[in-house]
Amino acid sequence: MDDFIMRAALAGLGVALAAAPLGCFVVWRRMAYFGDATSHAAILGVALALATELPVFAGVLATALAMALLITGLSARQFSSDTLLGVLAHSALALGLVAVSLIDSIRVDLEGYLFGEILAVTNTDLVVIWCGAACVAALLMWRWHALLTATLSPDLATASGISPRREQLVLTLALAVTVAVAIKVVGALLIAAMLVIPAATARPFARTPEAMAAYAVAAGSIAALGGLAGAFALDTPAGPSIVAVGAALFALSAAIGPLLRGRT
C-alpha cells in the first residue's frame, strides 16, 4: 500500500480516537453548536498562523481555545443561546475567510483548510495528530468520573467536591486540541460532524457512558477508513466522504435502534 494512504488512514484513526469520546460529552451536554463555533474559528487561526509564520497547528489551537473560552465566559454570564452561538460560529468563519484573503503574499489553498486534505498528511502531521489525540484521550480518561458527574448535575458535582467550572474548562481545552488536530483531516467545516455523528451513532447500542464512548470510537474509525476507501474508489474529496460514511452509519443505527429499545 502506498505510504500516503497509510498516513491518511492513521490520521483518520487518530482523529476518531480523540473526537469520538469528546463528541459523547458534546452530545450529552448539548454543546453541538459550541463545537461548531469553535471549529469554525479555526479558519481565523489559519490566517493568524500564515500572517505570523507560526505553524498552522499552533494558530488553530490558539484561536480555537480563545473562541471556546469566550463562549464559556459568555455562557457563564447567562448570554448563552442558540442565537449567540450562531452569531459567533458564522462570524468566526467569515472573519477567517476575509483574513486569509487579505494575506495575499501567499497563495493559500483555502479548500484544504475548509474540507481537509487528509491525503497530504506528512509524517510530522501524523506525529502532531497522534500526540494531540493521545493527550485528549488521556485527559478525558483522567477526568472521566468528574466530567460525567458534572454533566449529570453541576450541583451534585459540587456537593461531591468537584468544580463544574474546572470540568467545563477541561472539555474546552480538549475541544480546542481536537479542532487543531482535525483540521488537516476533515477541515474546519466538518470537524463538528466528527464529534457529533459517531456519538449519536453509538447511543442506541450503549447501556453505559463508557460503552457509548467505545462504540463511538469504533463508528468514527469505520467512518474514517470507509470514507478514505470510498474517496479512492469514486475519486471524491476525502473529508466529506468520511463524514458521509459516518452519516450512513448513523442512519443505519437510527433504523436499528428502535428495535433494541426494550434492551436499552
Binding site: 450529552w28 451536554r29 468528574a146 460525567l148 449529570l152 458535582a157 447501556r207 453505559t208 457512558p209 436499552t264
Partner: peptide
C-alpha cells in the same frame, strides 16, 4: 435531575459517580 436521553446510564453506574 433532567437526565439527557442521549446519556445511557444504569442505576448501578450512577451510584459509582464520582
Amino acid at each position: 435531575l433532567s437526565i439527557n436521553s442521549t446519556l445511557p446510564l444504569t442505576v448501578a453506574r450512577f451510584l459509582n459517580l464520582p
